[in-house]
Design a protein around this nucleic acid. Structure first.
Lengths: 148, 148
DNA sequence: ATTATAATTGAAAATGATTATCAATATCTA
DNA sequence: TAGATATTGATAATCATTTTCAATTATAAT
């Protein structure tokens, strides 16, 4: 399981315990590139881990987000979706979001150009609006292959 | 009141009636550049129009969004925010979103450059991922002047 | 290996944003 | 003016998420 010891270390550094539900959720997220909702995760884990509660999923995702281990994306349909951050490979990407089914497709084309513009924009905006910028989103909305 | 007749026409074209709650909501949105939540609007209108229900606000905002008259932004705090579209002046903008209070600040700096890159990106992504793109978001997250 | 401490969990309840239902009302066409 | 129908507003419901609290688990110390 990739990243296991890094994850454990990150937990310890933040006075968080390394528990079975947390390990299992991280493992699931590491096995997919999909952006998953809390319920997706709950459903996927149910057969192997029926005792893991939906509340635990929500709390764990919020913790992982706070620790900077996952991306949290609000696709506009009232639910949040999560994906493991994979910046170990300098992996930065942006999103295509389907407005019908909520599916999120990653893309990396043009990301370099986008990041260049983002960097320039960020500095100027931070100064002009007195805004402490911590992150950015670039996303395209529309209908995915299945929904069009 | 700017846009009143255009709005009425747009409503008629879509077999929608021109009603007092709708007129009042549009007027409020036209008087501000802020992105407002349904509850912001409900609260702002309450003194003058106490009979307008929150349900009506929600339904009307959804209609206005469907008619392409307002922007709908999910700032990530579980609520949607709305602002009147002002493309009559070719007014395109992107957003700074405060992750603490949810406030949305518009910016237009770099929008021309961003739109150039967006256009190029859009065409390539639509083709590569078989995605019918209808809109895009560019936003920076962080803390606003008040929250930092 | 055991024990104590405290973090974490899971079920149930609660909260808040939003939507559905339905009788009453308002708009608009003829 | 009358009739048809869209719309409204109050209430109930739905759903995503969070809070509460007793029980359980992880882990450090011995």
């Amino acid at each position: 399981m990739p990243g296991r010891y890094q994850w454990q270390n990150r937990f310890r550094e933040n006075v968080c315990r390394w528990t079975v539900p947390r390990e299992v959720i991280l493992a699931l997220l590491s096995r997919t590139t999909e952006h998953l909702t809390a319920k997706d995760i709950y459903g996927s884990l149910y057969s192997m881990y029926p005792g893991i509660g939906l509340t635990t999923i929500y709390r764990t995702l919020e913790l992982l987000h706070r620790l900077g281990l996952v991306h949290k994306v609000a696709a506009g349909d009232g639910q949040s979706r999560y994906a493991l951050k994979r910046e170990d490979k300098g992996d930065h990407h942006h999103h295509l979001i389907c407005t019908k089914c909520g599916k999120i497709v990653d893309y990396r084309d043009f990301v370099q150009e986008e990041l260049e513009l983002v960097k320039k924009t960020e500095e100027a905006l931070a100064k002009k609006h007195n805004f402490a910028i911590t992150d950015h989103n670039i996303e395209f909305l529309g209908l995915c292959e299945k929904c069009r």
